[in-house]
Computed example of a mutant assay.
Amino acid sequence: MSEEQFRRHVRKLAAMRGWTLAYHTHNSRRSDAGWPDEVYGHPQVRRTLFVELKSDTGRIRPAQAEWLRHLAACGLETALWRPRDLALIVATLAPNGPRAQLPDTL
Results as ranks from 00 to 15, higher is better:
residue 26 H to Q: 15
residue 58 G to S: 03
residue 65 A to P: 07
residue 41 G to S: 07
residue 33 A to C: 09
residue 49 L to N: 11
residue 39 V to H: 04
residue 37 D to W: 09
residue 24 H to N: 12
residue 67 W to Q: 13
residue 38 E to V: 14
residue 36 P to I: 09
residue 71 L to P: 12
residue 62 P to G: 03
residue 50 F to H: 12
residue 45 V to K: 08
residue 75 G to C: 02
residue 38 E to N: 10
residue 53 L to W: 12
residue 59 R to G: 02
residue 54 K to P: 00
residue 54 K to H: 00
residue 74 C to V: 06
residue 66 E to K: 13
residue 71 L to N: 01
residue 42 H to F: 07
residue 33 A to M: 11
residue 41 G to Y: 11
residue 75 G to I: 02
residue 73 A to F: 01
residue 35 W to R: 12
residue 45 V to Y: 05
residue 76 L to Y: 15
residue 65 A to Q: 15
residue 31 S to F: 11
residue 26 H to C: 07
residue 61 R to D: 08
residue 30 R to Y: 09
residue 44 Q to L: 05
residue 35 W to I: 07
residue 54 K to G: 01
residue 58 G to E: 02
residue 70 H to M: 03
residue 62 P to T: 09
residue 60 I to E: 00
residue 74 C to P: 05
residue 54 K to I: 00
residue 67 W to E: 12
residue 49 L to R: 08
residue 71 L to G: 01
residue 66 E to L: 12
residue 58 G to F: 03
residue 45 V to F: 05
residue 52 E to Q: 12
residue 62 P to L: 05
residue 50 F to D: 01
residue 31 S to G: 06
residue 24 H to W: 07
residue 58 G to C: 02
residue 52 E to T: 01
residue 64 Q to A: 06
residue 61 R to P: 04
residue 24 H to P: 02
residue 57 T to F: 09
residue 67 W to Y: 13
residue 52 E to M: 02
residue 27 N to S: 08
residue 76 L to V: 06
residue 61 R to W: 10
residue 71 L to M: 12
residue 76 L to W: 15
residue 26 H to N: 13
residue 42 H to W: 09
residue 29 R to S: 14
residue 41 G to K: 00
residue 70 H to Q: 05
residue 38 E to R: 13
residue 42 H to T: 05
residue 58 G to P: 05
residue 45 V to S: 04
residue 32 D to R: 15
residue 31 S to Y: 11
residue 54 K to E: 01
residue 59 R to W: 01
residue 38 E to A: 13
residue 57 T to H: 12
residue 66 E to T: 14
residue 60 I to S: 00
residue 68 L to K: 00
residue 43 P to M: 10
residue 60 I to Y: 00
residue 72 A to D: 15
residue 39 V to L: 10
residue 23 Y to C: 04
residue 73 A to I: 05
residue 25 T to Y: 06
residue 29 R to K: 09
residue 25 T to Q: 14
residue 60 I to N: 00
residue 53 L to V: 07
residue 63 A to K: 08
residue 24 H to C: 06
residue 23 Y to W: 12
residue 36 P to S: 03
residue 49 L to D: 08
residue 72 A to L: 14
residue 54 K to A: 00
residue 34 G to S: 03
residue 57 T to L: 08
residue 52 E to C: 07
residue 33 A to K: 12
residue 69 R to H: 10
residue 69 R to C: 10
residue 38 E to F: 11
residue 50 F to G: 00
residue 47 R to P: 09
residue 36 P to N: 06
residue 52 E to G: 04
residue 64 Q to Y: 04
residue 36 P to K: 05
residue 29 R to N: 06
residue 39 V to I: 15
